[in-house]
């Protein structure tokens, strides 16, 4: 693997997780528990799509085959997406979404904090900008996690189950392969073992406020690095890619 191939893959990982989580968040539009939340969740989706566009555009520049952000978003198949397994989990109920976003946003928060000093200028600039956004996403999801966890008996039980169900997808966030090794040596990527330590601290702090129990570390799902996904992703991208696929000659 060349450094260029590694960097391309790294950008797709970053871009895809934002894209897929953004697509999920935009599904909340007109479905929120209160009108104010429709706005909050679409705001988060807009931030995530913005992040995806930056990274997919950069991927095109690295690859040097003339691909645009849309070529990456609309013309790849399931087995070519490198988003986290967590980001593609269906929205479920509001508590499921909040728990998923919390776990993913806490990860993004620590990832971008560290990536802000990446030796790759594009990635560090992207991290600086994204960090501002995910700081807010983390705050939004953490505050809701606390409200639901320390709310009614019903909400406490519901969101504890959400957390328990999502936990097995968190291991995937921290897996690394030769892409990471190569880029860490170059000072471009970060060691996810370090991110994991910070991530756990954040999770512990918020769960304590939320009076929720951290799930046991049991079996962890895996797949992100090899573009092996759950069945849900295929449906998500089939819907997303419908128009360019149905009218291959058209420009939008």
């Amino acid at each position: 693997m060349t450094a260029k191939e590694a960097l391309l893959n790294y950008c797709l990982r970053l871009g895809d997780s934002s894209l897929i989580l953004g697509q999920r968040m935009s599904e909340w539009c007109s479905n929120g528990p209160i009108l104010e939340e429709d706005i909050a969740m679409t705001n988060i989706a807009l931030d995530l799509f913005g992040q995806a566009r930056t990274m997919l555009t950069y991927a095109g520049e690295i690859e040097e085959k003339g691909k645009t952000e849309d070529d990456f978003a609309y013309k790849r198949n399931e087995r070519e997406f490198y988003n986290s397994l967590l980001s593609e989990r269906p929205n479920g109920h509001f508590g499921d979404t909040i728990a998923r976003n919390f776990l993913q946003s806490a990860y993004f928060f620590h990832l971008y904090t560290t990536l802000s000093s990446s030796k790759d200028d594009m990635i560090s600039a992207h991290a600086v900008k994204s960090l501002k956004e995910v700081t807010y996403h983390l705050r939004h999801s953490a505050e809701w996690l606390v409200r639901l966890g320390d709310g009614t008996a019903e909400s406490h039980e519901k969101v504890q189950i959400s957390l328990d169900d999502l936990w097995e997808f968190t291991g995937d966030l921290f897996e690394m392969n030769e892409v990471d090794e190569l880029l860490i040596k170059e000072g471009i990527a970060v060691d996810l073992n370090e991110i994991k330590k910070e991530w756990i601290k954040t999770v512990d702090q918020v769960l304590e406020r939320a009076t929720l129990k951290k799930p046991e570390n049991g079996y962890m799902q895996t797949g992100r690095l090899n573009a092996i996904h759950s069945e849900y992703l295929g449906h998500l991208i089939a819907e997303m890619q419908f128009l360019p696929r149905a009218y291959p000659d058209a420009k939008w």
Binding site: C29, F49, M240
Partner: peptide, 24 residues
């Protein structure tokens, strides 16, 4: 909202989403 998930480009998607958000 019926077309957010199927907007044919990322630009079209964010524009539509921002517009619907304004409506909220």
């Amino acid at each position: 909202g019926n077309w957010i998930s199927r907007a044919p480009s990322l630009r079209a998607k964010v524009v539509l989403l921002a517009k619907i958000q304004d409506e909220a």
